[in-house]
Computed example of a mutant assay.
Amino acid sequence: MGLPEKVRIVEVGPRDGLQNESGPVISTDIKVELINRLADAGMQYIESASFVSPKWVPQMGDASAVMAGISRREGVVYAALTPNLKGLEGAIAAGVEEVAVFGAASESFSQKNINCSIAESLARFIPVIELAKQHDIRVRGYVSTVLGCPYEGDIDPAQVASVSRELLDMGCYEISLGDTIGVGTPTKARKMLARVANEVPVTKLAAHFHDTYGQALANLYAVMQDGISVIDTSVAGLGGCPYAKGASGNVATEDVVYMLNGLGIKTGVDLDKLVEIGNWITRQIGRNNGSKVGLALGCDQ
């Protein structure tokens, strides 16, 4: 099939990247500035908040304030995670134009993560997606643990395909396939994608790969050869999975953009600005920059 001419980057740093920070709650102002800077760098899709209970995810407790504070740019989608109806109602009130729901390909992970089975979690999304449709809000679906589970080990690609198909049939316009613990390798990633593509057109699929074992770029290159042209990334490699031991975080946006630039694939993202943002946000929250490119190019900044 060959590599795509253009890749759409889905920046998940402000949500997936910050939600599990264990230190003090990051100020709304910092989150708003991060989102505004990312839009200024050319990001056209920014996952900006999560409408969940502050009791469970304290870092996302100011979702409404974040959405009210950002300077919305024309042509930029500011999305939010809405795991249930209450979350969606909060997102609607905050003027969110696109939301995401989150399922898993592993029964054990689903139970440990959201205390219900895969089937129960999917059933919960039906009223969420129906209400979103009534408000002309597009819904994106996530499937986690597609290449491995911290509790079950390997995951059958047929199970990934089944959950992905259900989300598509419910009304999700795009399904993001998540290697939550970053254990995938290129051959494994391609086999999984081939099975899922039997059920869901590859044009409706995205790759959300973590870099725990340093395989994310190789895995992304592999699945791009099979038609993937949407990639989820997190500035400075922020984020991880609280339920996955040793999961070091999402693949860094800077690293992906650098690779795509080298391949001649268009993203519309300014790498220099991105490096500045990665160095800035990691200083703000007191953690190391997880981007190799950010560290290499950031020496001059």
Rank of each mutant, 00 (worst) to 15 (best):
P54C: 06
Y45H: 15
I26A: 02
G75D: 06
P201S: 09
R37S: 13
N115V: 11
L205H: 02
I231L: 15
I281P: 03
V160N: 00
Y221Q: 15
S291Y: 02
Y78D: 00
K6S: 12
P150G: 08
Y151L: 07
A68L: 06
M60E: 07
L274V: 09
D156Q: 05
S64Q: 14
P54H: 04
K191A: 14
I70N: 00
G153R: 12
G237E: 07
L205K: 01
I265E: 00
T180H: 00
T233L: 14
I46V: 15
T282Y: 01
P157C: 09
E11K: 05
V160W: 01
F109E: 08
G95C: 12
R190L: 10
G239A: 06
A93V: 10
G171M: 07
V146P: 04
T187F: 05
D270K: 11
L3H: 10
V269Y: 00
R124H: 12
I118G: 02
V202Q: 06
G214E: 12
E98M: 13
V200Q: 04
L18C: 14
F102M: 10
I231R: 01
L122R: 07
A218I: 14
A91P: 01
P242E: 15
G141T: 05
S229N: 14
K292I: 08
G95Q: 10
V25R: 10
Y151R: 04
M259T: 05
D270Q: 11
P150H: 08
A94T: 09
R287D: 03
D211G: 03
K55E: 12
V200Y: 01
V163I: 02
M1A: 03
S27L: 04
S176F: 00
M1S: 06
M67Q: 09
I9W: 03
N250T: 04
P186S: 07
S71A: 07
K292F: 12
R140N: 05
S48Y: 04
D211N: 15
S48H: 07
K86C: 02
Q19L: 06
E152N: 10
W56V: 14
L220Y: 06
G95H: 09
